[in-house]
Simulated scan of single mutants.
Amino acid sequence: MSSDRKIALVTGGSSGIGLAIARKFAASGMQVIVAGRRQEALDRAVSQLGEDASGIVADVSNLTSLDTLFSQIRSDFGRIDVLVANAGVGVHAPLGQITEAGFDQQFDINVKGIVFTVQAALPLLNPGSSIVIVGSTSSIDPGPSMSIYGATKAAVRNLVRSWVSDLKGSGIRINIVSPGPTNTQSLRDAFGEHAEEGLAFLRKKSPIGRIGEPDEIAEVAAFLASESASYVNGVELFADGGASQA
């Protein structure tokens, strides 16, 4: 591995938006590490990404698992140039049907997981490194039945507002890409048996008449991670076809 080749870690990188981001990075010549909870899914992702990609099983909501992840990266690679904190989960539940288990799951992965992923990565990040967090337009427009998910994404936005100051002088940039509805299996699964009706509603809401594709979100993440965005720091960039503004 060339010492000047960038090393990228993508959590939740075995499917959906995370896999699309990992694929974009690999195509640009980066050494890509994908992390996720299921070995089988990671193996499939790595087979798509090429021989220079690697997968590590990790649960971002578990601090011991995160310690193991970053210890292995330190041993194998010595550093991280780009961190994409993408792992997340959403549970549909309207007020009156919110469960403690659903609440805990979303905050444990979407908030606790982000906090301790970024914190554990810091010793491996050097000046010039970039952190990209995958948020959601739910941070400002959660819609019905997604109040808890939206609250987790709003929490992440406020974490980054503070972390920009905490990272002052480090040479590390941190930004958020917040996708709107994106054509992933997880989105379809979230609607369950009402998937087609749900997707039709989202398309109708969009000013450009469609939902996004994972590769489109990957392009935005790649921009934020790149030197082309060297003066971009602390932003939440909405990639949603204008839906959050409508």
Rank of each mutant, 00 (worst) to 15 (best):
K112D: 01
G113M: 06
G113R: 05
I114V: 15
F116A: 01
T117W: 02
V118P: 01
V118F: 03
A120V: 02
A120R: 15
A120G: 05
P123K: 07
L124R: 05
L124N: 06
L125M: 06
L125P: 09
N126Y: 05
N126L: 04
G128A: 02
G128S: 02
I131G: 02
I133M: 00
I133H: 00
V134G: 02
V134H: 00
V134M: 12
S136H: 05
S136L: 05
S139E: 14
D141P: 00
G143F: 08
G143T: 03
P144M: 04
P144G: 04
P144E: 12
S145R: 14
S147I: 14
S147E: 05
I148L: 10
G150Q: 09
K153N: 07
K153Y: 03
A154M: 06
A154K: 09
R157L: 07
N158G: 07
L159S: 01
L159T: 01
L159M: 13
S162R: 08
S162K: 07
S162L: 13
W163E: 02
V164A: 03
V164C: 03
V164Q: 00
S165K: 12
S165F: 14
L167N: 01
L167R: 00
K168W: 10
G169L: 08
G169W: 11
G169D: 09
I172C: 07
I172N: 08
I172M: 10
R173C: 11
I174A: 12
N175L: 09
I176R: 08
I176F: 06
V177Q: 12
S178Q: 12
P179Y: 13
P179L: 13
P179M: 12
G180E: 09
N183K: 11
Q185P: 10
Q185M: 09
Q185G: 14
S186I: 15
R188E: 11
R188C: 05
D189A: 15
A190V: 09
A190K: 11
A190N: 15
F191D: 12
E193G: 12
E193I: 08
H194L: 11
A195K: 11
A195Y: 13
A195Q: 13
E196S: 13
L199A: 01
F201C: 00
L202W: 07
L202E: 07
R203N: 15
K204L: 09
